[in-house]
């Protein structure tokens, strides 16, 4: 078994590598532009950019991107004024916002989810609200948040809060409501207090479902923060993308895409690990 498993992993890694090399090769081929076209007046040419002068594709090649990544890695925490900060600092701002909004959502979603899951009445009563609010794009809340909260930083955190709330709430409610009846009956027979029942019977039983909800939420929160920061600006990885877009620097936008993907993966894997820790065999 072990031998088959490891050989499968090895083969998968090999295929991954081949795909990666093919992708980089195609990229390189696609972006290595033509050489200089018409020779224009050098005085005039000085006023134009490289792509206008040489016909070189505006799309950067893999080498350009690698070089830019190296530049960011060498100095991730520089501060050259309010509007120009290192990639590391921008990531820190984004992660901070996500963490705050996410934790607030967790604080609200867990107790509320328990309530909904344990009480069929509340379940039915709150259902219409949840069903209407859930499909709303979190960014649609932004103008309303800016108008009522009157602070763009808190508005961004609010948007993260609202988008991470629903998956956690729904999964908690579902997890709680589908705890096995026998276990609850045992708890009832033993005359366990409601609080103790919640913590020692229901919580462990519902934990895997809750963690799934949390994992979905963190993914959504990370998706949304980039868009939210592009909208309100100031700081964060979303602002970085917007600022580089403003400068039409495709290289930096690609770098940002890679970084966003990497951080999103790390967040997801971290929660996946926690989920595995609380899973129990039935």
């Amino acid at each position: 078994m072990i031998a088959v498993g490891s050989s499968l992993n090895l083969r998968a890694a090999l295929v991954s590598l081949v795909i990666f090399v093919l992708f980089i090769g195609a990229w390189q081929l696609g972006t290595s532009g033509k050489s200089a076209v018409a020779t224009v007046d050098p005085e005039y040419a000085k006023l134009l950019g490289q792509s206008a002068n040489t016909g070189k594709s505006a799309m950067p090649g893999p080498a350009d991107v690698a070089q830019t990544i190296w530049g960011h890695l060498k100095d991730p925490f520089y501060v050259r004024g309010t509007n120009d900060k290192g990639l590391g600092i921008q990531l820190g701002f984004s992660l901070g916002r996500v963490a705050l909004g996410y934790i607030l959502a967790l604080i609200v979603a867990l107790p509320l989810g328990f309530l909904i899951g344990m009480s069929p009445l509340m379940n039915k009563a709150l259902d219409p609200f949840i069903q209407i609010m859930k499909p709303v794009s979190p960014l649609a809340w932004m103008p309303l948040a800016l108008y009522t909260i009157k602070d763009s930083g808190i508005s961004a955190i609010f948007v993260i809060f609202i988008c991470s709330l629903w998956p956690m709430l729904i999964n908690t409610a579902f997890g709680v409501s589908s705890v096995r009846k026998e276990w609850l009956n045992v708890a009832a027979t033993l005359e366990v207090s409601p609080l103790r029942k919640a913590f020692t019977v229901i919580l462990p039983a519902a934990a895997p479902t809750i963690l799934t909800g949390m994992r979905i939420s963190i993914g959504i929160a990370w998706l949304v923060i980039v868009a939210a920061e592009m909208l309100v600006g100031g700081t964060g990885i979303g602002y970085f993308v917007w600022n580089e877009w403003n400068n039409l620097s495709i290289t930096n936008v690609i770098v940002a895409i890679l970084v966003i993907g990497l951080v999103g993966m790390i967040l997801d894997q971290a929660l996946a690990r926690v989920a595995r820790a609380v899973t129990y065999p039935e």
Partner: peptide, 20 residues
Amino acid sequence: VEVVKTAGWAVIRDKTINKE
């Protein structure tokens, strides 16, 4: 004075109205 780059006209309007 801190001059802050802003993403768009609607945002600059709202941030000024909000006294940010």
